[in-house]
């Protein structure tokens, strides 16, 4: 077990809704090599909950300014530094499926957007805003990503002997019409199409 796995197990145990004997025993049986740490966490939680009086008085925090500066100076995700990073890079596997579910769109629909198969100018502003909020990304970084599909495609890994090239792009609305989805999902996305596209010029055609 590496340090990272160990830490993840300890966190998973710490946030269990119950630390009853069954839960404690289950973890102890499954991870006997970290038994001491598991017991320590259980003990910390019980002691905190059993007799904890939190004072309302502020506690001196002499280093908060340095800490804040340090936090501020760390560039948020999505801010490009040299090579553009795909906002989708951290949404893989289950996380990607969850993202699609949260947005209430089929996975294949989101895949087409991710893979640059949609004309950037046709993607409704309202949809981009919703996507940015759900992904925890900025609207600008998504705009840049959709506007430079070639760059984003080149940044991804391909298992092919041929150089990757951009396939023919479709409009957002065409994608909505040709993807299998429920009537409610389609209606909501078509509602988005009444909004302005990324070019902010005129409503997406169709």
């Amino acid at each position: 077990m590496n340090l990272n796995d160990r830490e993840v197990i300890l966190y998973a145990f710490a946030i269990e809704p119950n630390h009853d004997r069954q839960t404690v025993e289950r973890y102890l049986r499954q991870y006997p090599e970290i038994a001491e740490d598991l017991i320590d966490i259980s003990s910390e939680r019980r002691l905190r909950e059993a007799a904890w009086v939190q004072s309302n008085d502020a506690i001196a925090d002499p280093h908060w300014k340095e800490a804040w500066e340090q936090f501020r100076q760390h560039k948020p995700q999505g801010v490009s530094s040299g090579q553009a990073v795909s906002p989708f890079s951290t949404f893989r596997g289950q996380a990607f499926a969850k993202l699609a579910e949260t947005l209430s769109v089929p996975r294949s629909f989101l895949t087409a957007l991710r893979d640059g198969l949609v004309q950037a100018s046709s993607i409704p502003e309202r949809f981009v805003r919703r996507l940015a909020q759900t992904m925890g990304s900025s609207i600008d970084s998504l705009r840049n990503y959709f506007a430079n599909p070639q760059a984003s495609l080149l940044g991804r890994a391909f298992k092919s002997d041929d150089k990757p090239s951009q396939q023919g792009q479709v409009t957002f609305e065409e994608l909505v019409q040709c993807t299998n989805m429920s009537t409610e999902q389609r209606q909501r996305l078509l509602e988005d199409c009444k909004d302005y596209g990324l070019d902010r010029g005129r409503p997406a055609e169709g």
Binding site: L10, F13, I15, D40, E44
Partner: peptide, 11 residues
Amino acid sequence: RAIDKLRATAR
């Protein structure tokens, strides 16, 4: 509870 974990490790 996540802080409980940090506190246990630190202690």
